[in-house]
Structure formats: structure tokens, C-alpha cells
Design a binder for these strands. Structure first.
Length: 596
RNA sequence: GGGGGCGUAGUACAGUUGGUUUAGUACGCCGGCCUGUCACGCCGGAGGUCGCGAGUUCGAGUCUCGUCGUCCCCGCCA
């Protein structure tokens, strides 16, 4: 029978009591973590958000409480009054922070009972993720799970304090906003008042934060949810949190400096870790050339080398034909790994193919010479050129990819590289390696849409001296855009924006967005730009990913209190779900879906 | 949209070439015993739509097809 909660007040958290509290009368409240019933004496591990505390029920202290304690079960919510006592000789538990003491209970109140939970609230997690997510409220009771959210909270506080102390103002922007072209698919919200019209949930507060700069706030930030209706990944959720910021009268270096200081603070305050500043910088081009990816993990060697010049005339047709088409041949030298098995090589080839490569050529440099399916095609000159470029010697394993597309070569080898890092269990040179990726291309030609599309977004400023290339060679124009990469994960990105209307018009023209369409889609920003826009720029960091890296979480779901599955469903609330037909009528919506 | 993995008591798993009993094991749960345990211990007990639906077969947890859920990846997404 659960009892009323009156005339009783908690005096301490369970996890906070120490031997300094011995002889104190305390009242603690929490959940029955575990009960050990010895008949004549009962121990209960009582859990609250601060930790575990052993409560002893002893007939010498209170017969009534002991009798009542027999009825306790896992996850009952109880209040216990008692005296803090040193544990008897030999019964101290060094595993517990409170292990030197226990509370001798003289009063027990059962505040609430619990059904047997579907799984133990234990740190030995042998429960599948979908069961955890269905009962997320129980999963969240685990101390290790709670710890992530305490850490996350702490990170928020450091960020807010830092930015506030640096003249940033936190301003909220609308969630019910306007759908914009470009970028990700929007989540739409139908308008009840305006039939056939829709709001979109923001993919980011991009346009609004630029407007705030035009309004003269000078520095803005917001810790804010963003929404993107795209397929999920281990590090992608449909709604996620960014710290979004925008600054006026600044250049790239100003933003780098502020972010570096902010991250220094975050890591110091939250993890007591000193990180190195300024962060290293890599141009997009160098990142691709050396690491194959635009979010390179630079903590490991195994860099890509370009061997096009060495094999462009090779009698191995795959190489020579790719070179003829203007493609490249790149390779990785895996030092002292010529002993890798056929199976492992096959896995690597398969991985390269998944990432777009037609295939992958391997060469084992053994003491008996070059062992490879393509060895017989290579001349001695070609071999020595390859060896020179790749700094290869006996015992090494060379992996090469050739493709007409530079990006395909880099991307596939970049992923092969990461696979090798994991497979060979290479140790990172640093725990946290931040890198700025700079000089992204402004535009990318979309074969699918047959037009140029913005790599970052359409308001990103081109590099001033590349402006003449806008019309002549758009693919060569560099953007004043930058990404922040931590240990091979992109955790943020931003750019200096276009604040001059004539340049914005040229960009829209390139993107095939007519002036009519432009004013329809984001006319308010274009209008605003006419009224004295200061030079401005900003950045946004994905806080879910950042906290993942800080806590070592394997999945983004681990750092979100109520995450969604890969099909964007919430297993706890059962969202999304069908709605009443009356709701649809009010919203002037008729579903064409055929979910049985 | 595509490729791959997984799905068996509350939970985590085992289940052989398709044929051994009533589909097992551990934890949890229920009952009993137990005054120093701490993943307490001992004795006993209950608990199964083998995800769902077809098919092959004398016979399916096991094979085939479909479907649903979940995870990883490609495309997509900064």
C-alpha cells in the first residue's frame, strides 16, 4: 500500500552521504535499486540521482520497518528516516562512493509501488535498444545514462556563459516559419487559417539570424532545435540541437578565435581537459587530397598519395584509361601489412565499391618482389615511381583506386583509410583533434538537376578574388565557408555571408533561381539586404555530435533524451501516428497514404 | 529508393543435416528458509502466438517467399 507524502522532508541525497555524516539523523528518498533479504535483516540499495546508498533494516532499530521492508520490491519509491552509521568492520564496500556508511532505518514510508520493470535498472546493459527506447523512462534511470544528460546540461551552461560574456545575445527565432528551397526536405505544418498553405519547421535559423544582424544586434546566439526530414544515421536525427550564432563586422579569423576559446572553455569546464588552440587548418582541397574526406580524421597517418603521373601510360588499362579521361589514381601505403589476408583484402575492395569506386587494386611488396594481380602490367620504371611517391618498401601493402571522378577516388580511399585505422587498431595521436576545413567550393554541379547548387547555402559569400570566375568557371569559385571537424566528425559549419545585393543576385542567377522565384522564396531577406546590411557571418555547431564525442557515445540516440528510430519513430510515444479525421478536415488535408 | 545484419519466456541468449521427448540455459519474477549482505545465498515454482502471413514437406523455431519492426551502410542530408 502506498502512503501519503506529507509531513516528511528530504534532508540529503542518497549519493551524497559520507562518513562525515555519521550519527546524523537523515531522511532520504529514492527508488529501491536492489533488496537483499536475509530474513532477520534486510539491506536496500536506495538510488537517487546522486547515487546509491545502503539502508539497513534491523529488528534492533525498528521491528515495524523491518516487517514493512519485506514487502519492498525493485523500483518501489520510498522515504527512509534513520541514522547514518559506520558499517561494521569488514563490510565496507569500496565499489560505492557511500560504501563506508549505511543508514540504519527507523522509519520506512512506501511512497509508491512499482510493477516489475521489463528490465533491471542496471549498468550491466544486456537489453536491446528497442526495448530501452520503448521504456525510455526506465532506461533514463540508469546512472550512466543520466550522467550524459548532466554533462550535456553543463556544456549548455558553459556555452551560454561564454557567449553571454562575449557580447552575444540569445534571441529566439520562429519554429513555424517559411519553407525554403535548397537544402534538406522540410517538415511541414499545415495552416488551419489559410487553407492549402504550410509552415515549415526550420532546418536552421539561417535567414532569421542574418536579419538580426541587419537589425543591429551585432552578435546573436541560440541553442535551438533544427529539423530535417532526411534519412537517419547513427549520428543523424530528424530533430537535433545546434548552438547557432551570427556576428557582424567580422572576418573568418574572428569566428575561429571565438569558437576556439569557446571550445577551450567547454572542454576545460566539462571534461577538465586542455585542448590545443588555435586549431589546425586544412583547405578543402588538401583535406580531400590527403585524407579523402572533407571531415578528415587527422589523428592518424595513412595519407593518400597521387600516383597518376607514375601510371598514366601504364599498360594496365584501368589506370591509363582513367588518366586519359582526366581522372586520378591515388593510393594508400599500409606500412608493414603485406601479410593481410585475402579475405581482408576482399572486404576492403567491397568497401571501396560501396563508396563508389569501380574496384581497388592491391599490391603486396614482399621480399620476393611485387605480388599483385596487376604486377605483370607494371614496368620497372612505373614500380620505382610508385615506390618513390608512396614511400613504399618491402613488407608494405599498397591500395589503389582509379576513377574519372576525383571525388570518387578520394571518398572511397578515405573510407578505406578509416576502415584500416579501426581494423589495425591504430592509436590516435591525440584524444581531441580539432581542425578547420576552409576554402570550400562555393558551387557544385548537380548532374541530377542539371544546374549548379550551393555547397553550403545560397547566402554564402564567394572569396573576393574569385568573383570574376563566377560566370566563367563557377566550379572554381571558393566560398568563404568553413567547417569545424573534431576527430573526423563534422561538428559545425558556417560562412561569411553575402551582404551586398548585387552579388546575391549573381549567385541566384547561377543557381537558376530567377528574381521572381527569389523574391517569392526569400524576398524578406533580399529586401532587408537593401536597408544597410553590415558585413556578417556565423557558424552553427551540432551539439548532439559534440556531446557524443565528449562522452564517447556510439550513437546520437544515446545523447538525446527521447530519440527517434531509423524510421523516425518514437518507440515510447508511438509518434508519428494517425490522427482523427476531424483534425485533418480542420487543416484542409486529405491523406493519400494507405497505411493499413 | 537500394544493400546487409538481427527478430525464440519479462530480459539476454542456445537450439545440430528439417524429425528426442513437454523448445532449453542464465538473469528477472512468485513462494519458502536465512541477522551483515552488497550481482547475497539455499530450496521449490510459474512463465513461450519461436515477430506476423503464406508456401514446400509425412513433419518447420530450423528451408522458400512476402510482410512488419529494429540496427548499420549507400543514395539523401552540412
Amino acid at each position: 500500500m502506498s502512503e501519503p507524502f506529507t509531513d516528511i522532508k528530504r534532508s540529503h541525497f542518497c549519493g551524497d552521504l559520507r562518513k562525515e555524516d555519521i550519527d546524523k539523523q537523515v531522511t532520504v528518498m529514492g527508488w529501491v535499486h536492489r533488496r537483499r533479504d536475509h530474513g532477520g535483516v534486510i539491506f536496500v540499495d536506495l538510488r537517487d540521482r546522486r547515487g546509491l546508498l545502503q539502508v539497513a533494516f534491523n529488528p534492533g532499530i525498528s521491528r515495524a520497518s523491518l516487517d514493512k521492508a519485506h514487502t519492498l520490491r525493485s523500483e518501489y519509491v520510498i522515504a527512509v528516516r534513520g541514522t547514518v552509521a559506520h558499517r561494521p568492520e569488514g563490510t565496507v564496500n569500496p565499489e560505492l562512493a557511500t560504501g563506508e556508511i549505511e543508514v540504519l532505518a527507523d522509519k520506512l514510508i512506501i511512497l509508491n509501488k512499482s510493477e516489475t520493470p521489463p528490465f533491471e535498472i542496471s549498468e550491466r546493459k544486456d537489453v536491446s535498444e528497442s526495448v530501452c527506447l520503448k521504456y525510455r523512462y526506465l532506461d533514463l534511470r540508469r546512472p550512466s545514462v543520466q550522467k550524459i544528460f548532466f554533462t550535456r546540461h553543463q556544456m549548455y551552461q558553459v556555452i551560454r556563459n561564454f557567449l553571454s560574456n562575449n557580447d552575444f545575445t540569445e534571441i529566439e527565432t520562429p519554429f513555424l516559419t517559411k519553407s525554403t528551397p535548397e537544402g534538406a526536405r522540410d517538415y511541414l505544418v499545415p495552416s488551419r487559417i489559410e487553407p492549402g498553405s504550410y509552415y515549415a519547421l526550420p532546418q536552421s535559423p539561417q535567414l532569421f539570424k542574418q536579419i538580426l544582424m541587419l537589425s543591429g544586434f551585432d552578435r546573436y546566439f541560440q541553442i535551438v532545435k533544427c529539423f530535417r526530414d532526411e534519412d537517419l544515421r547513427a549520428d543523424r536525427q530528424p530533430e537535433f540541437t545546434q548552438v547557432d550564432m551570427e556576428l557582424s563586422f567580422i572576418q573568418e579569423e574572428d569566428i575561429y578565435g571565438i569558437l576556439e576559446n569557446m571550445m577551450k572553455n567547454v572542454f576545460k569546464e566539462v571534461l577538465s581537459t586542455d585542448i590545443e588552440t588555435p586549431f589546425s587548418k586544412l583547405t578543402y582541397q588538401d583535406a580531400m587530397e590527403r585524407f579523402g574526406l572533407d571531415s578528415p580524421d587527422t589523428r592518424f597517418p595513412l595519407e593518400l598519395k597521387d600516383i597518376t603521373s607514375a601510371v598514366k601510360n601504364s599498360s594496365f588499362k584501368v589506370f591509363s584509361q582513367v588518366a586519359e579521361k582526366g581522372g586520378v589514381i591515388k593510393g594508400i601505403n599500409v606500412k608493414n601489412r603485406s601479410g593481410l589476408s585475402r579475405k581482408e583484402l576482399d572486404d576492403i575492395i567491397e568497401l571501396a565499391k560501396i563508396h563508389g569506386a569501380g574496384g581497388l587494386v592491391w599490391i603486396k611488396l614482399t621480399d620476393d618482389g611485387w605480388q599483385s594481380p596487376v604486377a605483370k602490367f607494371l614496368t620497372e620504371t612505373e614500380k620505382s615511381d610508385i615506390s618513390r611517391i608512396m614511400e613504399a618498401g618491402a613488407g608494405d601493402l599498397l591500395l589503389m583506386v582509379a576513377d574519372p571522378s576525383f571525388n570518387t577516388v578520394c571518398n572511397s580511399l578515405g573510407h578505406v583509410r578509416l576502415h584500416l585505422v579501426k581494423r589495425l587498431n591504430l592509436q590516435p595521436s591525440k584524444k581531441f583533434q580539432f581542425t578547420w576545413i576552409t576554402e570550400f567550393p562555393l558551387l557544385d554541379y548537380s548532374e541530377e538537376e542539371k544546374r549548379w547548387v550551393a555547397v553550403h547555402h545560397p547566402f554564402t559569400s564567394p572569396v573576393e578574388k574569385d568573383l570574376p570566375l563566377l560566370e566563367s568557371d563557377p566550379g572554381k569559385v571558393r566560398a568563404r565557408a568553413y567547417d569545424l571537424v573534431l576527430n573526423g566528425s563534422e561538428i559545425g559549419g558556417g560562412s561569411i555571408r553575402i551582404h551586398r545585393q548585387n552579388i546575391q543576385s549573381r549567385i541566384f542567377e547561377l543557381l537558376g533561381i530567377g528574381s521572381q522565384e527569389a523574391s517569392l522564396k526569400f524576398g524578406f531577406l533580399l529586401d532587408a539586404l537593401k536597408y544597410g546590411a553590415p558585413p556578417h557571418g556565423g557558424i552553427a555547431l551540432g551539439l548532439d555530435r559534440l556531446i557524443m564525442l565528449m562522452t564517447g557515445a556510439e550513437s546520437i540516440r544515446d545523447v538525446i533524451a527521447f530519440p527517434k528510430t531509423q524510421k523516425a519513430a518514437c518507440l515510447m510515444s508511438q509518434a508519428p501516428s494517425p490522427v482523427d479525421s476531424r483534425q485533418l478536415r480542420e487543416l484542409h488535408i486529405k491523406s493519400t497514404g494507405i497505411k493499413k
